[in-house]
Amino acid sequence: MRRYLPGIIAMAAIVVASNILVQFLFGQWLTWGAFTYPLAFLVTDLTNRFHGAAAARRVVFAGFLTGVACSLIGTQIMGISGPIVTLRVALASGTAFLTAQMLDVAIFAALRRRSWWQAPLVSTLLGSMVDTVLFFTIAFSARLAMIDPGADIAWANEVLPLLGLGPALPLWVSLALADWMVKLALALLALVPFRMIVARFGRHLRTA
């Protein structure tokens, strides 16, 4: 347990930071949380590389529990139109995080013996795509309004050009696409610290 405690601490810090920063807009389509949350995949992949899939799942579960705690706190903080975290957002966040991260762990484990970049890149790309689809669909799709009938999602379903340029679609689709594009870019950039950390601490690498 002590060996992967740094991963648990890092994951918890990323989840807390992302839950705070998601309240602050970055441009028209993103929040600052979009730039911190993808680092969770880097933490998961490094834990998987050094300590194996079982340890990575424990780190993911620690992050999940941290996210649940953040959501519970958020439901008690009132904003202008109600709690800053609605039931739908809390459910979407927890479902997306746990599903995407566990998928990341499984894909990484399956590819871990291939070229060094394949496991972290493929697992992160697929995991982040699932994360984005699940979160934005559960949180904002009008078709799932029955999850939390009292939640105000009208703003997210306003029909606008996709990212201001494309076909007319609900706003949440533009938000989801912008979010995934950031995750895609960070998945590529994260290969640099992943490679450097693995090279630096390679003697501790678990190959089982």
Rank of each mutant, 00 (worst) to 15 (best):
G82N: 04
G82V: 08
G82D: 06
G82E: 15
P83M: 02
P83A: 01
I84T: 03
V85E: 08
T86F: 07
T86S: 14
L87D: 10
L87G: 13
L87E: 10
R88P: 04
L91T: 12
A92Y: 09
A92S: 14
A92I: 03
A92V: 05
A92N: 07
S93M: 14
S93D: 14
S93L: 09
T95L: 14
A96L: 07
A96G: 04
A96M: 06
A96S: 14
F97V: 02
F97S: 03
L98G: 13
T99N: 05
A100S: 15
Q101A: 07
L103D: 09
L103C: 13
L103F: 15
V105F: 14
V105A: 13
A106G: 07
A106D: 06
I107W: 03
I107N: 07
I107Y: 02
F108V: 03
A110Q: 02
A110R: 12
L111T: 01
L111M: 05
R112G: 06
R112V: 14
R112Y: 06
R113N: 15
R113L: 04
R114S: 11
W116E: 02
W116V: 06
W117R: 00
P120I: 00
P120V: 00
L121K: 02
S123E: 11
S123Q: 08
T124S: 15
T124G: 15
L125K: 03
L125S: 07
L125I: 04
L126I: 09
L126Y: 04
G127Y: 07
G127M: 11
S128W: 10
S128P: 04
S128Y: 13
M129D: 12
V130S: 11
V130T: 14
V130A: 11
V130G: 03
V130M: 10
D131V: 11
D131M: 14
D131S: 13
T132W: 08
V133F: 13
L134P: 01
F136Y: 09
T137Q: 02
T137L: 12
I138N: 08
I138G: 01
A139D: 01
F140P: 01
F140E: 09
S141R: 08
S141F: 07
A142L: 05
A142D: 05
A142V: 07
L144F: 07
L144D: 04
L144I: 04
L144V: 02
L144C: 04
A145E: 04
A145G: 10
M146A: 12
M146P: 01
D148T: 03
D148P: 08
P149L: 00
P149A: 00
G150N: 02
G150A: 03
